[in-house]
């Protein structure tokens, strides 16, 4: 997909740590990536890789004892006069007026759990209307009309009736559609979708993915899609960021990541997924060991204890940085840039 010259969101060397009694968890440990207008960027990784904390850091909703300790998150907003202004979100007060104005207005969010992300005490319409009236100067009646319009847009049948229903009256798929309607109600430039289809069945998942694609085409928003499902990434994304234990190990255009991955972790991850197209009852290549406990983070490259290409004396001592390995593609591995 085509994208503008300037990223709408730039994350630079982001570090979000959780300060707990037992020690410090480096949930995000130096993540760097860009998101462009109209682009879908996939952030993939297994549990504990920091993909959700990255999203929460962007929205400044990291819960205590978590804290952004370093880095920049630059949001570029278009002003009514045609100029763009740059805001470093890490410098803002998370509870301040500006951050609250950005949340929902410039950046929308879809959570994984459609069940828990709506309140059961208010109707769907009530909650969508609240978000609309908070950010746009509309009367109650106008906001309600817009909420109904949004529900229609995301393909909810009979939106005039559904708007007065409660979240528990909707099925999982419809609830996720309502969630999308709420996230898009104020026409944000960026949509962060944190595992938007993980709790859904495959046929419902296909419906929701098609909906997100259509809405993106119509509105030109940028989507940051956080998922562990590589199939979803292949179908939806233009570019991919692969994370492991809080660090970006590889990033690049989706075709290059899937057909020409360079980092040993990306390669191993792609090989180990069971594919619907593979021959049946053939053993899968696996990654040895399991993801380390967050307190027992390996020294050096976080992947070295499980890596097949580990170079003793280098990988377990020094931490590799992201370096170009191909056009638009970067990886953090000493295999490609041994002398740092």
């Amino acid at each position: 997909m085509e994208h503008g010259p300037e990223p709408i969101l730039s994350v630079r060397n982001l570090k979000t740590y959780f300060f707990q009694d037992e020690g410090i968890v480096h949930a995000v440990d130096g993540a760097t990536f860009d998101l462009y207008r109209g682009q879908t960027l996939g952030i993939v990784g297994e549990s504990g890789c920091g993909k959700s904390v990255t999203a929460r850091s962007v929205l400044r909703i990291v819960e205590r004892p978590g804290r952004i300790v370093e880095g920049e998150i630059i949001l570029r907003r278009e002003q009514p006069n045609g100029q763009t202004d740059e805001i470093d979100l890490t410098k803002l007060n998370p509870d301040g007026a500006l951050m609250r104005a950005i949340r929902g207005k410039d950046i929308g969010l879809i959570f994984q759990e459609p069940m828990t992300s709506f309140s059961a005490h208010y109707t769907i319409g009530n909650q969508i209307t609240e978000a609309i009236r908070l950010h746009l100067k509309l009367s109650k009646a106008e906001a309600r009309a817009r909420a109904i319009e949004m529900l229609r847009l995301v393909g909810i049948p009979k939106p005039e009736r559904r708007v007065d229903e409660y979240s528990f009256q909707l099925s999982g798929g419809l609830r996720q559609r309502a969630m999308i309607a709420m996230a898009l109600a104020c026409d944000p430039g960026i949509l962060i979708a944190d595992e938007p289809t993980t709790a859904l069945d495959v046929t419902t998942q296909a419906q929701i993915l098609a909906l997100l694609e259509r809405l993106q085409r119509e509105r030109g928003m940028a989507i940051m899609l956080i998922t562990h499902n590589l199939g979803v990434v292949a179908e939806m994304c233009d570019a991919v960021v692969v994370m492991y234990l809080g660090r970006v190990v590889e990033k690049g255009p989706v075709r290059q990541i899937f057909h020409n991955a360079r980092h040993p972790y990306t390669q191993a991850l792609l090989r180990s997924i069971p594919s619907i197209e593979a021959a049946p009852r053939v053993k899968l290549p696996t990654i040895t060991g399991s993801i380390p406990h967050p307190y027992k983070r390996p020294k050096g490259c976080p992947f070295h204890p499980r890596c097949a290409h580990v170079m003793p004396g280098l990988c377990d001592v020094q931490t590799p940085a992201l370096q170009p390995v191909a056009e638009h593609q970067e990886a953090s591995c000493f295999l490609y840039h041994p002398s740092q």
Partner: peptide
């Protein structure tokens, strides 16, 4: 057939071959 078609394939070259099953269970 619909179930097989709905599974996201981990290959970006197969993009857009999705067949949608409408409605709900």
């Amino acid at each position: 057939e619909a179930l097989l078609a709905a599974v996201p394939k981990p290959d970006p070259d197969l993009k857009g071959q999705r067949m949608l099953l409408e409605g709900e269970v």
